[in-house]
């Protein structure tokens, strides 16, 4: 089946800034939808982890943002968009272990510098568009490798 003609299920979420306790709500909802639709567990897991890490990043670094999720039969496309400070050195930010998160974030269990590399690892396509002082867009595609591909 050609997926290009298929209309995706589109979900839009606001990721609230400065509310660490609510980070992950959008990812949880997307995970629930994919489960109900019967998507391949491996794809669901990769979508969940990538989007959750992205949500955490938006809360920690950018005072929240918007998550737009498009669910196609053969893939899930996620756009995480924020109006935060931007990423000064994307190459550096993609290195495992590099983090600019403050110590209080590490006390919350994050900020080990694994977020962006792990997001990329989960995705089939991964792109960051960022501008200092304007914000960051993270664009991710996760393809279903299981029975629905």
């Amino acid at each position: 089946m050609s997926s290009s003609s298929v209309q995706p299920i589109v979900q839009l979420y606001e990721v609230p800034g400065n509310d660490f306790t609510r980070a992950g709500e959008a990812s949880s909802k997307v995970k629930g939808i994919l489960k109900k639709l019967g998507y391949d567990p491996d794809a669901i897991r990769r979508v969940s982890i990538a989007m959750y890490e992205g949500e955490i990043n938006m809360v920690i670094h950018a005072n929240g943002g918007i998550a737009r999720v498009e669910i196609f039969p053969d893939r899930v496309e996620i756009l995480l968009s924020d109006q935060g400070p931007g990423i000064a050195d994307v190459e550096k930010a993609m290195e495992e272990g590099y983090s600019t998160a403050p110590d209080e974030v590490r006390a919350l269990g994050f900020g080990a510098g694994m977020g962006l590399p792990n997001m990329k690892k989960c995705c089939d396509e991964f792109r960051i568009d960022t501008a200092i002082g304007k914000g960051t867009d993270v664009y991710m595609i996760i393809r279903v490798r299981g029975s629905k591909s």
Binding site: F20, T21, A23, G24, S27, S28, K31, R45, S48, I49, Y52, E53, I56, E96, L108, G109, F110, G111, A112, G113, M114, G115, P117, N118, K121
Partner: peptide
């Protein structure tokens, strides 16, 4: 962060972190 990056197919998480993100991580 480490749990999300390195852990696959684990049924149980032992942690000292008691904020909601421990549950979110386990869920994901």
């Amino acid at each position: 962060s480490d749990a999300l990056a390195f852990i696959e197919d684990q049924g149980m998480l032992l942690t000292g972190l008691i904020n909601p993100q421990s549950v979110r991580t386990a869920e994901m």
